[in-house]
Amino acid sequence: MSADLATYNFAYLDEQTKRMIRRAILKAIAIPGYQVPFASREMPMPYGWGTGGVQVTASIIGPEDVLKVIDQGADDTTNAVSIRAFFQKVADVAVTTHTKDATIIQTRHRIPEQKLTEGQVLVYQVPIPEPLRFLEPRETETRKMHALEEYGLMHVKLYEDIAINGRISKTYAYPVKVDGRYVMDPSPTPKFDNPKMHMSDALQLFGAGREKRIYAVPPHTEVVSLDFEDYPFEIQTFEQDCALCGAHGVYLDEVVLDDKGGRMFVCSDTDHCEDRREHGHVGAMLAPNQEAAE
């Protein structure tokens, strides 16, 4: 047995695999919201931990790219750290935590707060790409439903929800319609982020490794969250501001401070929060003690 078991290609994947994934990406862009089947490879990280996003990133990344990886909006969550380290190792690529400096952003569960720009690519890690899966577990059936544009069942399901709960209670992975044709799963981002997908300047690519699907939303493309005239789509709102940077109208994480119900809310997007603080914004938690000042 050789001590040097394997030498890996740039960005880990072999060229034949990259070509296969690249072809799938081009078709995905040409058919917005349609899930292109691809021969997903066994990656050196577990299925369900971003193998789809990693394969997409590995197939598009080049030496001139600057990569940012986030999980839950944060650059320092362990799986984001692990994926970033993987690309540093196999592609020797420049990395950043600054949204504005990145050319490729791989994400799990969030879209950055800062508006993305032309030339940026947002790569989503997707666990279950099929938006109809929670209505119908069979691929053979859901494929027909997409082919026939038969989405009535989805509306029935959402309406049942209103009948039972008084509102659409789906809070994340909220289904969208892309360019008026395909119903698409935006991956388990909170529905707070759905409006950011609409007419984005950036290209959005979605990779589902275990389920072997790639799909895409080109820039400047309509992405509409499903709703009803009498029950329009609405996003979460937070009463509080970020305790660290004072940001309002951003997605916040709830942090439990003690066992007496004490909690605070801070930006989920860590880069956004740090950037604001660098620019002098201060939240309640970091503000100089007001009583002392008085």
């Binding site: 999980d71 839950q72 799986n79 569960h109 969030r110 809070t171 994340y172 997605y251």
Partner: peptide, 14 residues
Amino acid sequence: EHLKLPHYVDFQAE
């Protein structure tokens, strides 16, 4: 096993 990865953004929404 991926269920042990952080899901707190979605949980916050719930």
